[in-house]
Amino acid sequence: MSELRFDDVTVRYGRTAAVDGVSLAVPPGAVVGLVGESGSGKSTLARAAVGLAPIAGGRITLGGVPVPARGRSRPLQMVFQDPYSSLDPRMTVGASVAEAMPPGGSRADRRAEVERLLELVHLNPACAGAVPARLSGGQRQRVALARALAARPRVIVADEITSALDVSVQGAVLNLVRELQRELGLSMLFISHNLAVVRYVASHVAVMRRGRLVEQGPAARVLTEPGHEYTRELLAAVPGRTTRRSRP
């Protein structure tokens, strides 16, 4: 297991710096929640990590070596926000998952691996033959998770993976994320604008604003005794903070 580190990373689009000198670490086996408003650069940071956005400065390393941006071996995988756009509509679920698997192995091995992965994300292995149009949003997001896991990643970057889902489905996906993290010991960079969601899955929290990291630390501390004004503002804005929950 190895640590994902961002060292003074800068990403520029034209003249504007979408990410401006961000240093952040995702310790092995930990879930780091990255919060911030839209345009704060959190998605750009994620895309830079998996090689989808060019970095203008700094380094992104995994276990001390730079994250490879070429070749088939990709230890970092990403799950996207919109489950309706992240699966090829012309490919069966099985083919999508199999595509991400490292090359090699017999056809039977690969099929068995696809079935194992689908079971891992609580989908019926019979789903493998279905096209995404037959699945609900939550089911698609699980396929996307299975596809990310198929590449045997050391770290998964989850970019707003529940924000396009209905609340009833969001819970199931969050439960799955926690379960996978516990069972597989996955490290994860979990991006969300929803603090309650981040609180539920993440052990560490980092707060971004205008391309810069304004605060980071253990979730329990950042969310209860925020050190930065902006974090306090975010916390104050969480809806339902006035209501008390009690299970019936």
């Binding site: 609340v167 009833s168 819970g171 609180r199 539920y200 916390l235 008390r244």
Partner: peptide, 21 residues
């Protein structure tokens, strides 16, 4: 009741899985 329980808030019990429908 399921809808209310499915949404995590700042006081949700972290030890338990969220309710799902």
């Amino acid at each position: 009741r399921a809808l209310v329980d499915a949404v995590p808030d700042m006081t949700t019990d972290l030890a338990e899985p969220l309710a799902t429908i």
